[in-house]
């Protein structure tokens, strides 16, 4: 097979005629050509730091510094450092089991809930360690929302699913809640399908509808940062396109981290891409240069489909 890393980009162009989903037209401000050139002679981590920090238009929203993560004695993340710029989309890619979901869960401390887990290193949200006593984990999770890999609607009505976040935060105004439910469902491209049965069970929705429901539910809490773990894995191409449109829309106001197994999707929606392999962050860079000109052999092999 042709090992040229540009294969992905070529595919992408062939499949998508819309210009905005073309990888070549995505926001590539994060890396200048000089940086890409430098990257090839450096190890990945300094490049990460540089590419994000030198980007003046996007301040660093979330910074992971030398994060190791353990399930019991089993270490699954090794010295991961990653800067996530605000108001942009960062894609996490890598083979199954490499620690993408685990890394994502460290960002809003969802791993705290799993017993026997442990981490070292720092996770900084706007410069403050998320484990700092001044950070309330409940508030942190409202600020850093999450869409899970497996969609898990609550066994309640569609309305109650969406209204749950604002309700637990203390919103009681019925009209306001109804408004939030409607706008959230609309943004998640689910409104038209469910507007006539908001009071029926969310469990009766199809898999793809449930996934969009979970996205809407997260949007309803109005977070700063949205973590999405394969948000389109159960969606048909049309819904996927709508979710991608949504992500594109959201990035104007939100910081988004998305895990995806779909290279084209990563290329279409993200500005920065991070490639994980066996718990190590192998390479990070702006999406365009990572896909067209990866510095690491492992990255190149992965994005050209040699493994994973």
């Amino acid at each position: 097979m042709n090992s040229s890393p540009t294969v992905v980009t070529a595919n992408d162009n062939a499949q998508n005629e819309e210009p905005r989903v073309d990888v070549t037209s995505t926001d590539a401000a994060a890396a200048t050509p000089e940086e890409s050139g430098e990257a090839s002679v450096r190890t990945s981590r300094p490049v990460v730091a540089e590419s994000a920090i030198t980007d003046a238009s996007h301040a660093v929203k979330v910074r992971a510094k030398n994060v190791d993560f353990f399930y019991g004695t089993n270490q699954v993340l090794f010295d991961v450092s990653l800067d996530i710029p605000e108001k942009s989309v960062t894609a996490l890619i890598g083979p199954s089991g490499c620690g993408k979901s685990t890394f994502l869960r460290t960002l809003n401390r969802m791993n705290d809930i799993i017993e026997g887990t442990r981490h070292t290193g720092d996770i900084l949200l706007e410069g403050t360690d998320v484990y700092d006593p001044s950070i309330d984990v409940v508030l942190l999770r409202k600020r850093v929302g999450m869409v899970f890999q497996k969609s898990t609607p609550f066994p309640k009505s569609i309305f109650d699913n969406i209204a749950y976040g604002p309700k637990v935060a203390g919103l009681k105004n019925k009209a306001k809640l109804a408004e939030i439910v409607e706008t959230s469902l609309q943004r998640a491209a689910l409104w038209d399908e469910v507007k006539d049965r908001l009071n029926s069970s969310a469990m009766a929705l199809s898999g793809g509808q449930q996934q969009r429901l979970c996205i809407a539910r997260t949007l309803a809490t109005d977070p700063d940062v949205i973590l999405m773990d394969e948000p389109a894995s159960a969606l048909d191409p049309k819904s996927t396109a709508r979710v991608e449109d949504l992500i594109f829309e959201l990035k104007k106001n939100y910081t988004i981290v998305i895990v995806t197994h779909n290279m084209q999707q990563a290329a279409r929606v993200s500005q920065q891409t991070a490639f994980f392999f066996q718990g190590v962050l192998v390479e990070t860079g702006d999406t365009h240069s990572l896909f067209t000109n990866p510095t690491e052999k492992q990255t190149e092999d992965y994005i050209t489909g040699r493994f994973g």
Binding site: L139, Y164, G165, A169
Partner: peptide, 9 residues
Amino acid sequence: HASYALGAT
């Protein structure tokens, strides 16, 4: 988990 992730205590 879903409940915690939405900011519930």
